[in-house]
Design a protein around this nucleic acid. Structure first.
Lengths: 252, 252
DNA sequence: GGTATTTATTGATCTCGATCAACACGCCCA
DNA sequence: TGGGCGTGTTGATCGAGATCAATAAATACC
């Protein structure tokens, strides 16, 4: 059951094709097992993974697209608590429904619902694969903590700057390129950062006016001044209020 | 190397004494190895785990107390991105310094710096222990995501209500008791929730005025009306502004 | 146990971003 | 190709919570 035995549905899946990801670390037999007993699913914007489905299929791997974990407050306010992308594995086994957000697609998302039994077996016996999912879960944890830190005390402009870097870090062939994919709509971005779409719009405009970036399209932007954007993201107040600073200097 | 061979430093450690925690799942041999090669450390408020130390001891287990992960912005603003308590295991192996907060004690904290080699070996071979740390890391991840959701869109009063429940859920013998330990100072609480100490103070006072809880001491409080507090935590606007609602009714 | 320093509370004012409103644009589908 | 709806942008106003200032309480330290 070697390379040639790989199921069609797995051949083009990122989790198998990318050597850093989970399925690429499975033995032929494991892959075959997992493939046979797992279910791929293609979601479109707004589709939700329902609770009943998650009880039987609590382990979800993302092949492509952006899946969000959303928290809904009683009066309708919504927040996106986390974004899951290519390679992320969400393990909801034994997670109580209470206090867990809903998993909602923010666009076309291809996922694979991994058979829990096989997943568990692989975790126990395949230390290479184990390491991959462990790293992935750690990433998720630290990313969530970073995100908490970002939205807790940063101002709108700073949050947005941080988000641009988060996107850059997560995009596939990121390198040090100046083009950054924004894989979510403005409205989702606002919910993720805990602000209003109007404010997002105003902040992008502000950053453009300062010559720090360009937003020719909604789903991508070009950073013109990386160090400056970084300083803003890091909360350097001097950068923030250039105009008021000038005012102060004039008075002095 | 059975029960009787347990090192003194381990005997009273929560990680060994509590059957749910990591060291309780180790074989005699594993525990002996780990114990020999690990280092306990007692920290006091303000103590920081330095980067040099973390390079060689990147795995930290909490025996007691509260350890915080803090992010510092360039202009001095501080945020607490996560709180680690009894039983939590922080795995910083291969985490770049960049974009990782500092680990700072919020009071007296007893930790154990686990030998990475032994930790790794245990993770590979002991599936019971593996399950425990996997669960723990998942808790950390989902807790951080919940927290993101909380601070993104909730109002001050709602955040505080959520925090009270978070404390209740995490305290050792929690049950459904009405007394909740607040294991951090007001100022740390404020930094964790992304608000000012003044606002925390005002919100507690507000909750007391409404008869929802009592705060006879700074480090503990008594919930008088659990359902009401829960509704506030869940963002029920009706609960929030009772006075203005009455005003509206009068006008109508 | 008593002093010094940090932390918590209370009040007054101000500001950033939320909210409301109106419009423009893009995108999907008939 | 053209309507129709969801999304994004821009402007005007408002309010929750930040900030500033002063005092009280609690904790640390000798």
């Amino acid at each position: 059951m070697g390379q040639s035995g790989v199921k069609d549905k797995c051949k083009n899946c990122a989790l198998y094709a990318d050597a850093d990801l989970f399925c690429a670390h499975l033995s032929g037999e494991e892959l075959c097992d997992l493939s046979n007993q797992s279910r791929t699913l293609s979601m479109k914007r707004g589709d939700t993974l329902e609770n009943e489905a998650l009880v039987h299929w609590p382990v979800v791997a993302i092949d492509s697209g952006v899946l969000s974990m959303q928290h809904l407050l009683q009066d309708g306010r919504k927040t996106i608590a986390a974004l899951f992308m290519r390679g992320d594995i969400i393990d909801l086994r034994n997670i109580s429904n209470r206090n867990r957000g809903a998993l909602i697609a923010l666009g076309k998302v291809d996922i694979c619902r991994l058979a829990p039994k096989v997943f568990e077996r692989v975790m126990e016996h395949n230390s290479g694969a184990q390491k991959v999912i462990w790293e992935n879960l750690r990433d998720q944890a630290f990313r969530a903590m970073d995100h908490s830190g970002d939205i807790a005390k940063k101002q709108a402009l700073e949050k947005l700057a941080s988000f641009v870097f988060e996107c850059r870090n997560r995009q596939v062939g990121y390198g040090e390129g100046d083009w950054v994919d924004i894989p979510v709509r403005r409205i989702d971005l606002a919910e993720y950062l805990g602000m209003q779409p109007e404010t997002v719009s105003r902040c992008f405009k502000d950053l453009e006016k300062r010559g720090i970036l360009e937003t020719p399209r909604l789903n991508a932007l070009k950073i013109l001044n990386v160090p400056m954007l970084r300083r803003i993201a890091n909360g350097d107040k001097d950068m923030l209020a250039s105009e008021s600073r000038i005012k102060v200097l004039k008075i002095a």
